[in-house]
Structure formats: structure tokens, C-alpha cells
Design a protein around this nucleic acid. Sequence first.
DNA 1: TTGAAAGCGCTAACAA
DNA 2: TTGTTAGCGCTTTCAA
Lengths: 341, 341
Amino acid sequence: MAAKPRIKDVAERAGVSAATVSFVLNDVEGARVAPETRDRIRAAAKELGYRPNTVARGLRTQRTQMIGFISDEIATTPFAGQMIQGAHDAAHKAGYLLLMINTGQSADEQHLAAQALVQRQIDGAIVATMYHQMVEVPTELASTPRVVLDAKPQNDAVSYVVPDEAGGATAVMGELIAAGHHRIGHVTERNEPIAKGLRLQAYRESLRKNALPEDPALIEEDEANAHGGYRAVLRLLDSADPPTAVFCYNDRMAMGAYRAAAERGLKIPEDLSVAGYDNQQLISDALSPGLTTAALPHYHMGVWAVETLLATLSSTKPIEPQAHLMPCPLVRRHSIAPPRR
Amino acid sequence: MAAKPRIKDVAERAGVSAATVSFVLNDVEGARVAPETRDRIRAAAKELGYRPNTVARGLRTQRTQMIGFISDEIATTPFAGQMIQGAHDAAHKAGYLLLMINTGQSADEQHLAAQALVQRQIDGAIVATMYHQMVEVPTELASTPRVVLDAKPQNDAVSYVVPDEAGGATAVMGELIAAGHHRIGHVTERNEPIAKGLRLQAYRESLRKNALPEDPALIEEDEANAHGGYRAVLRLLDSADPPTAVFCYNDRMAMGAYRAAAERGLKIPEDLSVAGYDNQQLISDALSPGLTTAALPHYHMGVWAVETLLATLSSTKPIEPQAHLMPCPLVRRHSIAPPRR
DNA sequence: TTGAAAGCGCTAACAA
DNA sequence: TTGTTAGCGCTTTCAA
């Protein structure tokens, strides 16, 4: 097999210099090359199957067409793929590729990772986390354009995007209220991720705005998984004045709600309406009836992050950092119905 | 902020030439440099915070320390993360980074993707798919070391790794049989992925080897999700001579089995034993009781692929392509018990 | 309208 | 024991 052709080979074959080839193949502004010569060069390049070497070009132009994607444990969560895919698609469309690096939680590793990316001359960086939280942007990236994905930068004034948890939770509550529920429970998680506070607050505000009872007995905390949801909902159902609907912190807890309801002989949605959050399809689609929930917009956040990054790359003047709340659209399935009474 | 230091800056500060700095910092074999000079150079590099520019080095050495990771839709499946993580960890440990690119199913896109990677001078490539299947290795990679991950190469003699489906299924069946079950049903999927045939065959062989009845009425096909599993298991339970245990093609179908059993008033595992495949934790851990299943070893396959690739990179003589079956370990939870009768 | 030459930052022969 | 030089493959200024 023939060795990969270089620009010199194309030049020789077309009977011109390498410089001229470069002009033509890159469509350089204001390069005056005879149309005839252009054709000859293009033909030669095509015949040889010439592809410019991005590394050599990168050395010369200081642009590698690579975006560093640095994250904590992201690849291990079921959502991660969506975010990577969104970032990938947006990058790929613009001719960029993602150079991935995962770090643990350790600050040391994060610095090393950032360094590895900088050494490789990435044009920009995405700093991502697996769920909505605060993040330290490694100082090594200080002179690299960067955007934070699914987190808020703690120490750095850069653009970032996070899900609009309040909006999503309000939409879910709106759906429950529209169905006619007055006594709505909330099952929340025990730890304190950012999402918890935001969803809980939206729950309370929805109640207040609609003049519905805000009974502390309607809120139960437990582990943020199916087992926790099961236990919490059971407590709600066994309470003195049980709710007719329950908004769960996430789809996993909602899965537990289904089991709790079944155990008490309650049918969903006739006897109990249930809503979740996350739109974790493996669950929300698999439950029967399908779970109504708010979707975490991972794909779109990935796209937004890269597009925002690319915009700053191609802009001459500095761009104001933006904070973007990505909407969490309501996904209607069949777990909500009017209350019995 | 000071511009990034170059090797020349280190050389100047240490009062030596760039070449000497390169020797010392790269620990070049048989480079005779006075220990004193070495120290001076190391100190200078440290003071300046010097990091060699990988792009420049790559141009010179023809090694970029990057591995191309090319896949179909991988990032969108819940398993993908594990595979990426495994590949990433193995690569990172050896000083390599993953350059990711996703293609759709289109052959055109796959060629373009391979080209993009080759242009970037990747040292090697991983060709991955989201589930065990046949794959075309893009011809553009012909002169790049490459390994196929979670698929069999159709047109290329290269190393590859796939899950040992037969082994995993046999282990699952062994568990059911050891618990004392004689009438074991199998719920399988309607399409024909490689995994289906392998798991089904292992089911049959396990029955045969243990002199257990191989009744066609014990096998039901449906969609490979919770709804399909629900329907298929319901058919099994409502049949003339229902099984006391059912081995489901995957965890999602097993999730449906739980619902079917509940609907017929059967408790798991007392009245019906259930086993799955995949160890999709979001499901197998969330079900109650926890689902006994065989784990798809995505993380380890990712590690194996990269390690195998790196071995060929650092070997002088060509290495025989290997086909590796990665074990699918049995994950015991609580969905299997002895039959009632 | 085109070509020559310099140089991006580094490594590796070869000299000294 | 260390420095000089050439060159990886490309782009871009400057000159012709």
C-alpha cells in the first residue's frame, strides 16, 4: 500500500509548489491562482487521495480542531452517554473531535487531566460532571476557552449550563394539579444535591400558588432509589390522610412508588397518580403504566456547551459568560389521572 | 500570565541546548549527560512549569499518544459508559487519551470518521459497537493498529473481544438447576442479535446435559423490553404446564416477568424463580427482590481492547490477532429459590 | 499568478 | 559530555 501522500506529492503531480496547493485546498481569501491551476491541483489531490495532516497543520496554526472533554465520573452514569453524544454531535458538525478524559473526584487528578489536555493543544475545553453540582475549573485551563456542563463553576467566570429543575418540577406539579389533585405528596431524597432543593422548592411554590395544603406530613425523605421510593411512599399511603398523587424526586423513586401502590392494592393512575423526574427511559418507559416525568435535557446541554464554546472560539471580541438554564420538558405518559374523590 | 514555556526556554535557563534538555527530560537510553547538568535541567523545567508540547512531539515522532475510539451509536446506550470508561482507564494509565468519534449506521459516515482519525495521526484505533454484532472495519484504518470491541470484524483479521454469552447463560441455568428446578422456561427476543442465539442455545444445552425436559412450550418470544417480557411470561404462566422458573433474555424482560408474576399472585422467588441477563443495574438492583443475572462485562472488554492494542503498539514483531471471549460473571441476588413442589 | 523560505516545537543523527 | 543541524508536514509572509 502506498504511503500517505503529503502536500509535496500533490504539488509535484500538479506541477506547482506546496504553497500554492495549500492556498487552493484551503480556499485562502484573496489568493490569486489561475482557475486552471486550481483545477489541476484539485484533481491531483483527489487522485492521490490526499488528506492534510492535522497534526502538522496544528503545529503551524496552533489549532488542533480538538475539544477537551473533562469530567468526573461521567462515563459511568446512564445519563452520561447523552451528554457526550450531544457534545460530540455539535463538535463533529463543526469539524472538531472530542478528546476525552475522566478524572476521579481527586483534585490532583483533575489538574493532571487538564494539563494533559493543554499539552495536546486543545482549542477549547468542556468541564462536565455527572449531575448538577458545583465544580472547580482546573487552573491549568485558565488560558483555554472553556464551558462548564451540568454544573456551576465555583472559582471561575465562565459560561455554564444546568437543567431548569424548578421549571421541570413546576410543570410536573402543574400536570398533577390540572388533573384535579389537591393532596399531593412529595417524596424526596436524603442527601443534598442541588436538584433536591430546587425540585422541593418548586413543589412548595406550586402548592402555595394554587392555594393547596402544604402539609409537612406530605413530604417524605429516603434513599434516592427504588427501595427508598418504596418505603417513603408506603409511609405516605399509611398515613392518616394519604395523598391522591405523589411527585417523586426521580424516576427510580417513582419505580418504588409503583411497588408500594401495588402492595396496598392501589391501581395507578386510578387510585394513585405518580410523577417522576429525569425521564430515565429504561425505567419510565418500562413501568406500566408509563411514567409521566420531566426530562433531564442532557443531549441538549451537551450541544449547548459545545456551541457556546465554538462561538467564543470563532469570535474576535471576548464574549460575556452566560448562565443557561436548559428547559426540562414534561414527558406525558400514563401515570396521572383525576383523583377518585 | 506568562506564555507557555518551550523547550528553548528551559535550555536557556539551564545554560544548555534544547537537545540536551530533550535527552534528559525523556530519559533517553545511553545519553551521557553529567548528573549535575541533569539536575540543572530538571530544576529549570520545574521552575518554569515546562510541559512538552505533544503536538510538536507528535509531528516529529509520528506518535500522538492518542487512541481513536470509533463507534456506531454507542454513546446513547446505557452500557456505553462502562465500555468507554474501561477503555479510557487502560489508555490513561499508559499515557494515552481517547479521541472519540461516533458514526451512525451509514457506511459513508464510518469512512469519514476513520479518515478524520487517521488525519489526526492516532496511534491506534478501537472500533466499538453498542451490542455484540458483526462490524465492518473501515478500510481507512488498514495501516493503523486496531482492535474491535464488542463485535466481530467482518472483513478484517484483527483482534476482537465479545462477551461469553454461552458461558453466562450456562451459569444462569446452572443456578436455576442447582436450586432444584426441572421445568425452566426461556423468554427470548424476537429479533436475531448474536446474543439471542447464543443464550438460547446455552439454555437448550443446559437442559439436555441435565436430562431436563426440552419442551417447545417453554420458550416464548417477544419484544426485548419489559412489556415484551410481561406478555411472554404471562403466556408461560397461563399455559397448561407452567414452568417453576424462567430465564429471561435480558433484565428488561425480567422486569416484565416480575409484573406478570405479581398479576397472577405469584411471589418471587417462592412461587416463581426468575433470572435475567446483562446486569443492568438500574433494573436488576431496583427490582424487589434483587434480580439474579449474568453481567455483561463492558468495563473489562474496554480494558482488554485497549491493552491488546497497546501491546501491539509497543511490540516490534507483529502479533497474532486474538479472539477473546470475556466471561459474564453470575451476579447472585434474590430472585432464585427452590421450587414449591 | 506563483514560488521560496521561514518557522510552529520538538527529537535524533551526527559532530565536536 | 554536549551542541549543531536537519526535518516531521504544513501555512504564510514576502518576493518575483
